[in-house]
């Protein structure tokens, strides 16, 4: 495993000027497209990109408009990880060297329908970087609940009303489930902290075998936020502790950011139409869940 110090840092000043995700039809202010664009700039030209059904594939490959400026392919919804494994293995078998295969899949494509293939890919330790851009619902089909939709979220399949507060379940512990495979490298990130994300993609790029990044990526359309606040809201989520920045490598968890004090959860929630309906009691449930999670992480990951 490469240590961070050994890898030349990539930042806005020294990253390639070349754009690899360009002219796409994502909504204005799309957080997912920031995650895809930045990762591809870190990974560079010799990259194979695989994307399952989802926003990023839907907006990138509308014939004849081809928005990926390097090799890219749409996979079946459940088959992103396995198709990427096939690409990596096929290219290796053909004698190709010095390339990376990357997946960009949404939260539903990763934590729900694509999970089995992802688990297999990590189990085989195939040389693939799997990036899950998490906008907390099935956005491409019109905002339905996924396994990573947090408690209280209003979606089109978890409407909030007199009887229900929207989504009843908390987010799956995706990062820890992935780490439990004893993967070489896994991390969480947020487009609200772009440099941290770049560092993690860069680290994964230099990891041989399977690696995984769970990046929090805002969706102004699905969340009901102004387009210009996409990066800010993804930062707010981290600052209020609902999203955490961590890594797993060499069998150890590491909490990258451990604030003394969290920013306000209600302030974060109230900026978004999807949470507008939440009662004080709901916010209490969300806060309790955050505190439990953090006390566990602080106990074991520091």
């Amino acid at each position: 495993m490469n240590k961070v110090l050994d890898i030349p840092r990539v930042n806005a000043k020294n990253m390639t000027d070349k754009e690899f995700f360009y002219g796409h039809k994502a909504c204005a202010g799309c957080g997912g497209s920031i995650a895809v664009r930045l990762a591809l700039k870190v990974l560079g030209e010799r990259t194979y990109t695989a994307l399952p059904a989802g926003c990023m594939s839907a907006v990138g490959f509308i014939f004849p408009q081809m928005a990926f400026n390097s090799n890219a392919i749409i996979t079946t919804f459940p088959g992103a990880a396995s198709m990427a494994s096939g690409i990596a293995m096929g290219a290796k078998a053909l004698g190709q060297k010095d390339f990376k295969t990357v997946v960009f899949a949404g939260d539903g494509g990763t934590a729900d329908i694509g999970f089995q293939a992802l688990s297999g890919m990590i189990d085989r330790n195939d040389d693939v970087l799997y990036i899950c851009y998490d906008n907390e619902a099935y956005m491409n089909t019109g905002i339905q609940k996924s396994g990573l939709t947090p408690y209280g979220t209003q979606t089109t399949t978890t409407p909030a009303g007199k009887n229900l507060p929207g989504t009843l379940t908390h987010k799956k512990n995706l990062f820890e489930i992935i780490a439990a495979h004893d993967i070489a490298y896994a991390a969480t990130a947020s487009i609200g902290y772009p440099q941290d994300y770049l560092n993690k993609v860069n680290k994964a790029k230099h990891t041989k075998g399977a690696s995984f990044i769970h990046v929090y990526a805002s969706c102004p359309t699905g969340w009901g936020t102004p387009t210009e606040t996409s990066v800010e809201i993804a930062k707010d989520a981290v600052d209020c502790g609902l999203i955490f920045l961590a890594e797993y490598e060499d069998g150890e968890f590491k909490l990258n950011r451990n604030p003394k004090e969290f920013a306000s959860i209600p302030d974060y929630l109230k900026k978004q139409a999807r949470f507008k309906h939440l009662s004080d009691q709901d916010i209490e449930i969300i806060t309790e869940h955050r505190d439990k999670k953090w006390s566990r992480m602080r106990k074991h990951w520091l």
């Binding site: 360009y22 796409h24 204005a28 202010g29 497209s33 664009r37």
Partner: peptide, 25 residues
Amino acid sequence: CPDGTIFKEDGKIKIDLDYCKGCGV
């Protein structure tokens, strides 16, 4: 920039208005 439309030229920031969607980020 979600669309990658901002670029560097002669030490200045330029914007490719063919592909900027005006999100305001």
